[in-house]
């Protein structure tokens, strides 16, 4: 891919024609037996988040092993741009479209166009459960289960004393609603036991980003001086919150539980700046998508949703993690 891009770049800059043939659609025989199975068009929410980058890279790698070519583009959170990308996929007659919608509602007409063109559509991470669209299958993290794990981690972090905690939310994301739902259920269950009560005193909007997470945590600390824990719905928000706590001198008093397990988040766990993360497995999600595409093409039946469980990642796990050495 890189070489092709480079060549393309050279051609584009020179505005010269015919210097390179970008091969698509043709069916060359690759290394003996494996024939090209066609092209998978992938349009992800964004590629500046490593989570989606890993999904895209895994689809390319796994698809490549099976003889699929892939093109991975970023919707840049702009649903109109993503719509254009999908329309271009349809013109190219790709064998499958993989999508994480920038907006589950606004993307509907575009998915309907793909449906009408007879191209199977798969969603990854962000679902589109709307009437009138046909999605072959949805691959996502088990966010509800992950939220429960986060709840257990929080209880463990606070220990017997319990205490007040805040949630840094991202309410427009369905995945985050599920995470907080699971989290709240575990906390409520724990409180029913009557020991080491954990009280959720506030739920603030964090935008799932460092800057807004920073502000939200600052406000939470101002409002509740005796806060003992923060659950942030993703790593950027958790890292933003940690920065605010360090500035306010409350880093020792307040424990943070994040979500995701991005490299930066994992490093923070290793350094003890975040207590623990339920981590997601974008690589497994990418591999599942490719498997689903193959199964669909073979005419096998698929469930409407494939959930990938999270796993809790603490400091001890980070110490052993080869990717952080």
């Amino acid at each position: 891919m890189n070489r092709k891009n480079f060549l393309f770049l050279a051609c584009g800059v020179g505005l010269l024609s015919g210097c390179h043939k970008a091969d698509d659609g043709a069916a060359p025989v690759l290394g003996g037996e494996v024939k090209s199975r066609g092209l998978i068009g992938v349009s992800l929410l964004t590629l500046d988040n490593p989570f989606f980058k890993v999904i895209g890279d895994t689809i390319s790698a796994e698809g490549g092993k099976l003889g699929y070519q892939t093109v991975v583009v970023s919707g840049d959170r702009d649903v109109a741009k993503q719509g254009n990308q999908i329309k271009d996929f349809i013109v190219k007659k790709v064998s499958a479209i993989v999508l994480s919608p920038c907006d589950s509602k606004s993307i509907i007409p575009v998915i309907q166009e793909a449906n009408a063109a007879g191209i199977p559509v798969f969603t990854v991470d962000i679902p589109c459960h709307e009437p009138g669209v046909t999605i072959v299958t949805q691959v996502a993290t088990d966010n509800y289960g992950g939220g429960k794990e986060a709840g257990r981690a929080m209880i463990e972090a606070l220990g017997e004393a319990g205490g007040k905690i805040a949630i840094l939310h991202l309410k427009q994301a369905e995945s985050c609603l599920l995470r907080v739902k699971g989290f709240r259920e575990v906390i409520a269950e724990h409180n029913a036991g009557g020991k080491g009560m954990v009280e959720i005193v506030t739920e603030l909007e964090s935008g799932g980003a460092k800057d807004l997470g920073y502000k939200a945590a600052e406000d939470a600390v101002q409002a509740h001086g005796d806060l003992r824990g923060i659950f942030a719905i993703n790593d950027p928000a958790a890292l933003g919150a940690r920065a605010a706590l360090e500035k306010a001198g409350k880093a020792e008093q307040i424990r943070i539980v994040g979500f995701d397990g991005q490299p930066e988040g994992k490093l923070a766990i290793k350094e003890g700046r975040i207590y623990a993360d339920p981590i997601q497995f974008p690589d497994k999600m990418g591999a599942q998508i490719v498997e689903a595409i193959v199964k669909h093409s073979k005419g096998e039946s698929l469930p409407a949703q494939i959930l990938i469980p999270t796993s809790l990642y603490r400091q001890a796990d980070a110490m052993k993690d080869a990717s952080l050495q």
Partner: peptide, 22 residues
Amino acid sequence: IQNGMNLTNVESYTQKVVLGLV
């Protein structure tokens, strides 16, 4: 330019560079 790059499987990062330069 945008459509052509989508049709020739150029990935998003490169697209921006090419668009700017073109």
